[in-house]
Design a binder for these strands. Structure first.
Length: 304
DNA sequence: ACATATTCCTGGGGGC
DNA sequence: TGCCCCCAGGAATATG
């Protein structure tokens, strides 16, 4: 799943591949679903003949600047955006192909079709996706004060849920939240209201460290992720908890556990991440049972 | 107002 | 071997 390090790797590799400066000479929309705004006709007309002037990123959004427009791309789960030779085999689920003036193509492929594009008049276009308009600070810019305020607003929310909220911090997804909480030695189910300022500080440091290391390794590839030149990342080799259920913790040797937090598969070390700020539901759900977390009828009284 | 469930979508994998 | 069902999850939307 492309998260911040993956999207940034795509951005850098597209730049390294020489996308900036190229002119779009033809647009083929092969599956209209991925054009989210405006209409397909206006989308094609707005890109036709335009030169790419810069490539930016905010959170998990890729911002392809084309003269008087910004093409906003989100890869979601399985999206790939890469520079391709025109005669390269056309992979299935290729939904958008931009022909460039140097003969190459910028292709978008997305098996699940969750990803898509918004062509905007500018950065303040009200048609921008809600997620982009409400995006919080980048992880390397978020302050401890901001984290503390967010925790105060969501006292009863599991910290994992807070970090996945793009309005709080931009760019984190399931992989890097699990990895950061392990490094910070905080149990993912810990409620935000019970985090100490030291916990929050360790989380802030862990976020920066894990994202930096992931970026240095060009992102994490399990199946789908490829960079702007079609190459996979390498950070999966260095993950400490994500998708390591049952394998020894790289810090203490304890088997990594898997459970469900904030609706997501969640990996953690029961020894390194002993939470105490949450209802004692530490039973790792075996992945083979379809155990919906039995609705815990609350006994806790409203705090306020 | 806040927290959680559902929805979208498809390929892959487990179970039998 | 083959089928069936579950599972993955980002973000919008619906429900509690």
């Amino acid at each position: 799943m492309p998260e911040l390090p993956e999207v940034e790797t795509v951005r850098r590799t597209l730049i390294e591949g020489g996308l900036v400066g190229r002119r779009i000479v033809h647009i083929a929309v092969l599956h209209g679903d991925v054009v989210r705004h405006p209409s397909i006709g206006a989308f094609v007309a707005g890109l036709q003949g335009k030169r790419l002037t810069d490539i930016g990123r905010r959170g998990k959004y890729l911002l392809l600047e084309v003269e008087d427009r910004v093409l906003v791309a989100h890869l979601r789960m399985t999206g790939r955006l890469w520079l391709s030779a025109p005669d390269a085999e056309k992979l299935s689920h290729t939904h958008l192909v931009l022909d460039l003036d140097d003969g190459r193509q910028l292709r978008f492929r997305d098996v699940r079709r969750f990803g898509g594009f918004h062509l905007l008049e500018g950065p303040d276009d009200p048609a921008a996706p809600q997620g982009l308009r409400e995006l919080g600070p980048e992880p390397d810019a978020v302050t401890l004060k901001q984290l503390a305020a967010a925790c105060a607003r969501h006292e009863r929310l599991a910290v994992k849920g807070l970090l996945l909220d793009q309005r709080v911090v931009a760019g984190l997804g399931n992989i890097y939240v699990d990895e950061a909480l392990h490094r910070a030695r905080v149990h993912p189910r810990t409620t935000c209201g019970s985090l100490s300022s030291k916990d929050r500080a360790r989380i802030a440091v862990a976020l920066r460290e894990v994202l930096q290391e992931a970026l240095a390794n060009r992102g994490t590839t399990f199946l789908d992720f490829r960079d702007g030149s079609g190459e996979p990342g390498a950070f999966q080799e260095f993950l400490r908890v994500y998708r390591r259920e049952g394998l020894p913790c790289r810090t203490c040797g304890e088997p990594i556990a898997k459970t469900r937090v904030a609706g997501r598969g969640t990996h953690y070390c029961p020894n390194c991440q002993k939470g105490d700020g949450f209802l004692s539901n530490t039973a790792p759900t075996s992945t083979k049972t379809r155990s919906r977390p039995a609705k815990t009828s609350n006994a806790s009284k409203p705090a306020r």
